[in-house]
Nucleic acid binder design. Structure first.
Lengths: 340, 340
DNA sequence: TTGTACGCGTTATCAG
DNA sequence: CTGATAACGCGTACAA
């Protein structure tokens, strides 16, 4: 029994009557032959002392830590949590541990986060951040590989995993148009150069253009502070509906969906009857609001898994240009987008 | 310029023309006097090379890693995320980093999680788990301190931080009784020995007893699989309301609230008019369901902070018996518990 | 006040 | 096939 920590490789070596090197080889280079009796002795000693190598010491010596740094812009965002969950699962299966760093929406802390994580010798990064706090380039990453999730950073050629925003938006718009909606309002958080927001907004514009002049569309950037502006936008939309032209809102993510739902309640408007609705992100509460909220469900688990897998492939030495994985969303139809 | 990693203490020493020990002292023992010119040289070298000590090597050598292991039963639970957020903030402020391990509701992986984290020399643990997978005692913690959050483990004398369940339940019940509700149904996830669930259930029983025979109460354990049973329980409750005796449901947490809301929709029942409602956990969507869901808001951020602070105090050497921090909840009244 | 030498636990190299 | 030995980066007795 050891008093302080766990058994070390030296303890095992002593117990087995061999050298530390032999023990190390027994564990790491099983392919090379060891004389059977020595192997047996080592194995017994390892088992008896319940020996586990110290990842810290391994990291120091061998260079790899089997740690993956996951940086999230805002852990409050259910999307991020869902992705994190998928990534964590994949990492654990591959023998990696995740170190989480939450930016709490403080853009400037991204550099700090990377440095802190790099200090612990993480083998690579999964980044779900804005990437605006001081140009996160390959250099700032301390030469370690990274995978970007949902948000592309300008001038960074890392692997990238995300929802296929263009296709998803096309599906959502198509569904509404088919259901008879003719005035579409896309509500998004302020673009601020966030790639996913820009992509969705651009795709929205393209969809509307494809149906013009039968369909009209508008974009509204919605901040958290200014509920009045949102109310105004919604009631304007409602008023603009004339001659049976039905109106609908598309929400850029779950946060916006919540804001829209609150505004609808304030204005005493009903989903589906007064205003059609489709939102990105299918939250657990989506079926319970009004007649049920139609949503574009993101394959968050798959996105997280893909990000982790991608990164681990790189860690295993995969070379080649940056890859882009765009995963398809799924439209979950509920009462809020009922046809005429 | 270093090719591989960052500058090491040796690089700084060389650049300043001193020994590694001097550099180390300059950083760690500022109180002791160093000759001013040497100090200046070291300082300059440190700045110029942008030197940062490797936490890994520090951990290996000095024993402490400035890492805190946070083990969560289920990261999908918004409560856990909120607590995590508070804990993470406090940790960062104190210079600690959080390593997250998510059990994904797999009880048996708790031991695995602790061992993995201990391998990385975490200085202590924050545990939000069931504590049933193989008796997590002080021994299994590798001698490191721990703080329990929300769920007490049997036979473990660690610090404990949680909502004051008894007081919160008393407030919730009192509010309903005062509002004229006379038939109360408390719906909880299966108790399974989870301390917080048991406490709330016990407190519910006590509250009902205090008002008997004016008020009647019942407890229903609601699994995720069996929606029919929940529907039956709800419609039974509804039927049992006679002679103007109003009925209400209390939900043990946000997950249950979601299930209840779904069941209410299936049965075409309305919150507030048909059935009163108060739920534990005030989720962001609570105001948007029906007439707004009355909720017991937990001080999740404070709980997380308190847990982290508690642990860090122990890490700094605080002795003494295990402490219990019970933080008060806040009742947020909305339409679902409207008075007669 | 500063430098030397060693230990932390592991892996890799190089002899044997 | 196996055993010394030198890193890895840092803190700290101990010596000067």
């Amino acid at each position: 029994m050891q008093r302080p920590g766990r058994a070390t490789i030296a303890d095992v070596a002593k117990a087995a009557g061999v050298s530390k090197a032999t023990v190390s080889r027994f564990l790491n280079h099983r392919e090379r032959l060891l004389s059977p009796d020595i192997a047996a002795r080592v194995e017994a000693a390892v088992a008896q002392l319940a020996y586990t190598p110290s990842p810290m010491a391994q990291a120091l010596s061998h260079g790899r830590s089997r740690l993956i740094g996951l940086i999230v812009a805002d852990i409050t965002n259910p999307y991020s949590v869902a992705v994190l969950r998928g990534a964590e699962k994949a990492c654990q299966e591959a023998g990696y541990l995740v170190m989480l760093f939450n930016l709490g929406n403080d853009v400037d802390r991204e550099r700090e986060a990377i440095d802190a994580l790099a200090g612990y010798q993480v083998d690579g990064f999964i980044l779900n951040t804005l990437g605006r706090g001081g140009l996160v380039d390959a250099d700032a990453l301390h030469g370690k590989p990274a995978v970007l999730v949902d948000r592309m950073h300008a001038g960074m050629h890392s692997d990238f995993v995300s929802l296929d925003n263009t296709a998803a938006m096309k599906t959502a718009c198509g569904h509404l148009v088919e259901g008879g909606y003719r005035e579409l309002l896309y509500i998004t958080e302020p673009l601020k150069g966030v790639s996913s927001r820009r992509e969705r907004t651009a795709a929205f514009g393209a969809c509307v253009a494809a149906h013009e002049p039968r369909v009209a569309g508008e974009v509204f950037e919605c901040t958290g502070d200014d509920g009045d502006a949102l109310d105004a936008a919604l009631s304007a939309l409602r008023k603009r509906a004339r001659r049976g032209r039905r109106v609908a809102v598309l929400a850029g993510n779950a946060v916006v969906t919540l804001r829209v739902a609150a505004a609808m309640a304030r204005l005493d408007l009903s989903f589906g009857t007064d205003v059609g609705f489709v939102g990105f992100d299918d939250a657990e509460w989506a079926p319970l609001i009004g007649p049920g909220l139609t949503a574009v469900a993101q394959p968050t688990d798959a996105i997280g898994r893909a990000a982790a897998t991608c990164l681990i492939e790189r860690l295993r030495g995969l070379e080649g240009p940056a890859r882009q994985l765009l995963l398809p969303g799924e439209l979950v139809v509920r009462g809020s987008s009922a046809a005429a």
